[in-house]
Amino acid sequence: MDVSFINHFIESAANVFNTMLECPLKRTSLRLKTEAEPAHEVSALIGLSGTHVGSLVLSLSREVALKATERLLLVEFDDVTPDVVDAVGELSNMIAGGAKAAMAHLNLSLGLPNVIVGKAQKIYFPGDVSPITVSFTTPWGELAIEVGFDTRLEGNISQVDQRATVSC
């Protein structure tokens, strides 16, 4: 994986949280992801495909997911409802879209987000992809983005099934 990709996702995440939520992100760590479990309780998974194929996982602590949804909808939430799931999916869509625009030369297309709730489920990237986890802290709590791209697929635009998958 071309690790420079990750910078576009970091910048896009900061932009989305600043613009839509007025919530500053502070990066706390960057590491290779080795475990299959998502970092936090509410995670949105979105695929990108084009000359490269990859996935973004936006993983929010419960507190961040609830506060972010409250900020968007101006309604208080005390549980992870379908509204929270929708909001987290849309945040992942905007982050992936921003990164995609910054990598316009790759001619990527966005998939539609899927959201999983809970940490028991596992997210599998393709075996030859080493996803990178970037952790952030916010005034509301913790979140992370996980990004994996298979650069071996350069020039092949058909292998969209190489995106990350989820299993229970």
Binding site: T19, G98, K100, A101
Partner: peptide, 24 residues
């Protein structure tokens, strides 16, 4: 979220009247 110039051009060619990129 489609912010690339090529996407905007595609939308203009299809007859879009105005365009706003998320996030906003």
């Amino acid at each position: 979220t489609e912010a690339e110039r090529s996407r905007v051009v595609t939308a203009i060619e299809a007859g879009v009247s105005d365009y706003l990129v998320k996030p906003f």
